[in-house]
Amino acid sequence: MTLIERLKDEQKAAMKAKDKPRLGAIRLALSAIKQREVDEKITLNDDDVLAVLTKMVKQRRDSVAQYEAAGRQDLADVEHAEISVLAEFMPQPLTEEEISALMDEAIAATGAASMQDMGKVMGVLKPQIQGRADMGIVSKLVKTKLG
């Protein structure tokens, strides 16, 4: 079952259960996926859908930080709820040890020796890690390893 099919099935289940917050989050995800398909005139595969979901989760995390800084916990709670719904459709997050092992493999595979080779390392890592770890954190780890 593809990720889009799973989202549509969960949308139907949320409708039947009258779970409005869950339904809203799933509809937002399906809408973002459809928007990208229309804009690029393509049909998204699971990796592309995962990229859309990852972007949505990142946007919501940024919103949570802004809402909490402004003292709007009510809005932050809504964003947290959407993050938890979207996270159900993403793969298991990687542990620090797994990320470190993948980084070591990528550095060895590319022969990276300095910061100038960071792009090569990130190019190898991104498809393996996308949706399973925060790319900003991975980028910082690669910088410290190469720096």
Rank of each mutant, 00 (worst) to 15 (best):
K20T: 14
L141C: 03
V78T: 05
E10Q: 13
L44A: 06
K41D: 10
T54A: 00
I42G: 06
V142M: 09
I26P: 03
G71T: 01
T110D: 13
E97M: 09
E40H: 11
E98M: 05
H80P: 11
L86T: 06
K58G: 08
I26S: 07
M135I: 08
A14K: 02
M135V: 05
M90E: 11
I137A: 11
T43M: 13
L3D: 02
D46P: 06
A113D: 15
E97Y: 01
V142G: 09
I26T: 04
I42T: 10
D104L: 11
K34M: 07
A87H: 05
A133W: 03
P91Q: 05
G131V: 07
R72V: 04
A17D: 14
A76E: 01
Q66W: 00
E10W: 03
K55E: 04
L125N: 02
V142R: 11
K145I: 02
E40K: 09
L75S: 00
L44S: 13
E68K: 08
V121D: 09
Q92C: 15
P93Q: 03
I42V: 11
V85T: 12
V57D: 10
G131F: 12
A106Y: 09
M115C: 12
A51M: 05
T95L: 10
E68L: 14
V138S: 03
E5T: 12
E105M: 02
M135C: 01
I33S: 07
A113N: 13
S63G: 14
M1A: 05
Q59P: 15
Q73N: 14
R61P: 07
K16H: 05
A70C: 06
A51P: 07
A112E: 02
K18L: 14
K20C: 07
L28Q: 14
V49E: 05
E5R: 10
M135A: 01
Q11F: 09
S100M: 11
I129N: 07
E68M: 11
K143W: 02
S84M: 12
L141P: 03
Q92K: 12
D39K: 15
G147I: 07
Q116G: 04
E97P: 08
A108I: 00
K41Y: 04
T95K: 12
Q11M: 14
F89K: 01
K120T: 01
D104S: 05
D117G: 12
G136E: 02
A29G: 09
T54N: 04
T43D: 12
D47L: 08
S84C: 06
L7H: 04
P127M: 08
V38K: 03
V142F: 01
I107C: 02
A108V: 04
M1Q: 09
A25F: 06
L75A: 11
V78Y: 07
A109M: 02
V138I: 14
L94N: 05
Y67T: 01
T2R: 09
E88W: 05
I129Y: 03
K145G: 00
L125R: 05
I99H: 07
G24Y: 01
A69G: 15
Q35Y: 15
N45Q: 10
A101I: 08
M56L: 13
V121C: 06
I129S: 10
D117R: 06
V124D: 07
G24V: 10
I26Q: 03
M103W: 00
A14L: 08
P127T: 03
D46N: 07
A76N: 11
M90T: 00
Q128C: 11
A69E: 14
K41P: 02
L102A: 08
L53T: 01
S139Y: 14
K126T: 08
A32P: 03
E82T: 02
I33E: 00
V49C: 09
T95R: 13
